[in-house]
Design a protein around this nucleic acid. Structure first.
Length: 270
DNA sequence: CTTTAAACCTGGTCGC
DNA sequence: TGCGACCAGGTTTAAA
């Protein structure tokens, strides 16, 4: 479900509600996610104060005094703060019971994860090999030029690869390529310097605009208080096969690239 | 090493 | 109405 803008929307909405609260207990109803939720999670985190809610790629990092709770929302995960008790529904797999309120994790498809990293351990296997943040200083067009050198991969697969840059999922990969007027099947190694610059700029721009709109809700994305995003109203190609291109009127095409549905304008993007 | 495909899981939609 | 096929904001793991 969530790409970077959706995770960032959740993070920024929840952080002020969570910081300074104390985790009283953890209630696990379904431990089997992408990885099993550690059975001793409650022991690890109970009694500790929350100091921050950070984000790395699409991971949420709930910082407490003695370590970090790693949370990933997979395709269908949501994380909501409830100020008053509310009966858990199907797929509400986990609750962090706070001194005031409840932080509730829901994930129908269970592609997400909740793991514990003690502060005593350096790094984490899921985080250590990730590429740069698209909205950070290390992500430059020169970096893309170097990284793309010699690669024959389809451009769309390339920019969705977490080793290249994190946070660019299927929606925003499609949108950024359209805005940069680049065909998703172009070999990554064949782009010119100005083409990389355009793509770099549009990846950043589309992510920033989506964050401003509170993310994109196609089916079930909701922010930390249960509200949907609004960026879907600004999507120019995602999900729009057989519709006319907003730039030139040509009918948009859909094609599966790297196992993911892809949409593009065959006239504008080359 | 690079690239592609299968796998994880549930639920909604579409066509017959 | 029922049922199977197909699709979905992601990522790891195995295989080519």
């Amino acid at each position: 479900m969530p790409e970077l803008p959706e995770v960032e929307t959740i993070r920024s909405g929840l952080e002020p509600l969570l910081v300074h609260k104390t985790i009283a207990d953890v209630c696990i109803r379904q431990a089997q996610l992408r990885y099993r939720i550690p059975a001793d999670l409650a022991v690890c985190v109970s009694g500790q104060r929350i100091t921050a809610l950070q984000r790395r790629a699409k991971y949420l990092l709930l910082q407490v005094e003695k370590g970090t709770i790693l949370i990933h929302l997979g395709m269908t995960g949501s994380l909501r703060y409830l100020s008053a008790a509310q009966a858990p529904e199907r797929h509400d797999h986990l609750d962090f019971i706070l001194d005031k309120g409840i932080l509730r994790y829901r994930d129908p498809r269970r592609f997400g994860l909740v793991l514990w990293k003690p502060a005593t351990e350096q790094g984490h296997r899921l985080l250590d090999k990730l590429g740069p943040e698209p909205l950070g200083d290390a992500f430059t067009s020169d970096y893309l030029v170097r990284k793309g050198e010699g690669s024959k991969r389809a451009l769309k697969s390339f920019i969705m690869d977490n080793h290249v840059v994190v946070g660019v999922g299927n929606i925003y990969a499609n949108e950024a390529l359209f805005l940069a007027r680049l065909h998703p099947l172009r070999p990554a190694g064949g782009l010119s310097q100005p083409e990389w610059e355009a793509l770099h700029r549009h990846i950043i721009e589309v992510l920033q605009k989506a964050i401003k709109a509170g993310g994109t809700t196609i089916q079930d994305f909701v922010d930390g208080s249960g509200k949907p995003g609004y960026f879907q109203q600004q999507l120019l190609v995602y999900g729009r096969d057989k519709e006319p291109c907003t730039e030139c009127g040509t009918i948009l095409q859909k094609q599966v690239i790297g196992q993911r549905s892809s949409w593009f304008c065959p006239a504008c993007q080359s």
